[in-house]
Write a protein that binds this DNA or RNA. Structure first.
Lengths: 222, 222
DNA sequence: TCCTTTCTGTTGGAAAAACAACAGACTTTT
DNA sequence: AAAAGTCTGTTGTTTTTCCAACAGAAAGGA
């Protein structure tokens, strides 16, 4: 287990916890390791998950196959990332997705029940851990809600405006830069790139905003 | 505070906690009450939130105004529901939305720091509370991810298929009923009702599925 | 520097969704 | 039982998006 400490101290889950404490917590949380070979399924749709996982090495895809057999990749997990946190609720039902190892992958399993139950006084950094995990899912929650608010706009134009408007708020300035190129932004908003690019230029021509590469500036419509 | 116990014991946050314990926990969590009159803003965009809130009475809207002044209602909070949980992360930035009282509303404030920090041994139901709050957020997370996976499909048809496919999985049967009427389903998937209704009928005519009101049955395409 | 690759804006035609409007089926109220 | 209201499917028109293709600009590598 020792070899994972360097990785773990950089994860959100164990941030702020010292090396020695991580080691003792791994015991406390009943941590186990499992290696999946390339192409192997870590979990399959319909299974029940009772652990919280962190990917130590490799690469995983969370994917979904629908009733008619169409495959859809929902997410790629990279080393240090946590997954499974949404399925540890006692009666949360079976897993709706498949988790497959794209490369040979090393996965750490933590006993979720212990994370939430064991008395912090017995393990001084337990409180820290609970906070960290809480903060992590809380953050995720927030970004999901935000993305959802953009995506529920009906038109590409409105998706763009709501996203850019929020970004301006967040960065507290009408001039700001975004962390996406055009293709990434289109993917994020689930729209076609060329149509989006087109719409951006229309907005510019209408005087609503201006941009250069990933730098944007919002203005009042003329 | 006593008068809120009946309500609180029915919330997800305090489920499984007895009356007496709720009362002592309210102290432990530094619970405070605030009444908002109809039309009053509980929070405004740009503020920082340091509490977890439960609506005791009334009705709140979480809404957003964009840079150009367009208003958008994101969510309606009803009695017993929790909110603000996504903003308690220390450096989560300012609130991006407004929270406004639609009717006169009574809101309970809980000290988030205390929820996550105080040693459970001092307050026997604290562990229970941490679990409850974790489960609640976790559940919300899961439903957000699911909704997002439907909404990121590009066409109405694909949105429908992914939603119905998941519903069949979840209910573990190719025959199932959904909790929406047509308009609600359209709103949930962010599409036009009539176009969706049209698409549903096409799918039926192609032999992919059958339905009657909110009862659906998936089948292999002919 | 030149060459290759990536990124962005632009276009025109094809496909899909939104919109408006309406009729029949079903519910609820009176 | 009648009336009013809601829900659903259907249609035709308008608007928007998607898609494919391309050219210039920018970035990166040889």
């Amino acid at each position: 287990m020792k070899k994972f400490i360097t990785l773990l101290k950089r994860t959100k889950l164990f941030s702020g916890v010292g090396d020695a404490d991580i080691l003792s917590m791994l015991n406390c949380l009943n941590a186990t390791v499992r290696v999946y070979s390339k192409g192997e399924y870590a979990f399959r749709q319909g299974e029940y998950i009772r652990n919280l996982m962190i990917l130590a090495e490799g690469r995983l895809h969370i994917q979904k196959e629908d009733y008619w057999g169409n495959l859809n990749i929902l997410n790629e997990i990279r080393p240090g990332e946590m997954f499974g946190e949404a399925y540890i609720v006692p009666d949360s039902g079976p897993l709706m997705n498949d988790v497959i190892a794209i490369d040979e992958s090393v996965v750490l399993f933590f006993d979720m029940e212990r994370i939430l139950t064991v008395c912090p006084s017995a393990c001084p950094f337990h409180t820290r851990l609970v906070k960290n995990i809480f903060y992590t899912i809380s953050d995720k929650n927030k970004s999901l809600v935000q993305k959802l608010s953009y995506m529920s706009e009906r038109s590409t134009r409105e998706k763009l405006l709501s996203y850019l408007s929020d970004e301006a708020k967040r960065q507290n300035s009408s001039s700001f830069s975004i962390p996406f190129n055009r293709q990434q932004l289109a993917d994020y908003l689930s729209v076609d790139r060329s149509a989006m690019s087109n719409e951006l230029c229309k907005l510019r021509d209408e005087g609503m905003l201006d941009f250069h590469k990933s730098e944007f500036k919002l203005s009042q419509a003329k």
